[in-house]
Amino acid sequence: EHVAEIGKAAVAREGSDLTVIAYSRATTVALQVARQLADEGISIEVVDLCSLRPLDRETVCASVRKTSRAVVLEDDWLSYGVGAEISATLMEGAFDYLDAPVRRVAAAEVPLPYAKPLELAALPDANDLIKVIRELLDATRFSPQATGAIATDTR
Rank of each mutant, 00 (worst) to 15 (best):
E109D: 15
L123W: 11
F142H: 09
Y80P: 00
R69D: 00
A106D: 07
S63D: 03
P101Q: 12
I133Q: 05
I6G: 03
D56N: 03
V132E: 14
A115I: 09
Y114R: 13
E1F: 10
A94V: 03
R134W: 09
A122D: 08
G7C: 05
D96Q: 13
L52K: 02
V64D: 06
A88P: 06
L73Q: 01
E119H: 08
I150W: 13
V82Q: 06
V29T: 15
P101H: 09
I21A: 00
L73C: 00
V47D: 01
E1Y: 09
A108W: 10
T154D: 13
V11I: 15
D96Y: 14
E92C: 03
A100C: 03
T147F: 12
D99V: 00
Q32W: 10
G148F: 13
E92V: 02
L37R: 03
A126Y: 06
Y80Q: 11
Y23F: 10
R35M: 05
E14P: 00
V105G: 04
A139Q: 12
A115N: 13
V11L: 07
L90Q: 05
P124W: 09
E40D: 14
A151F: 10
E135V: 02
V20R: 00
G93K: 06
R53G: 00
L112P: 05
V72C: 02
V33C: 04
C61Q: 12
L78F: 15
H2G: 04
A10T: 14
D125I: 03
K116L: 15
Y114K: 10
I6W: 04
Q145W: 07
V72K: 03
T27Q: 06
E5L: 13
S87V: 09
A122S: 14
A62M: 11
T19H: 07
A139P: 07
E1K: 08
L123R: 11
L78P: 00
D48A: 01
V46K: 01
V102S: 05
R13S: 06
P101V: 02
M91I: 07
Y80W: 15
V46M: 02
E45L: 05
A149D: 04
E58Q: 15
D75Y: 12
L136M: 10
W77C: 00
R13Y: 07
L18R: 01
A30F: 02
V46C: 01
R57I: 02
A139V: 04
V46N: 01
T67A: 01
A22Q: 08
G81Y: 13
A100G: 07
E135A: 12
C61T: 12
E1N: 11
A26S: 15
Y23D: 01
V71K: 05
A88V: 07
R13N: 06
V71F: 05
A121R: 14
G7F: 10
V64M: 04
V11P: 08
R103Q: 13
D39F: 09
S51M: 08
P54C: 04
Q36A: 08
V105C: 04
P124M: 08
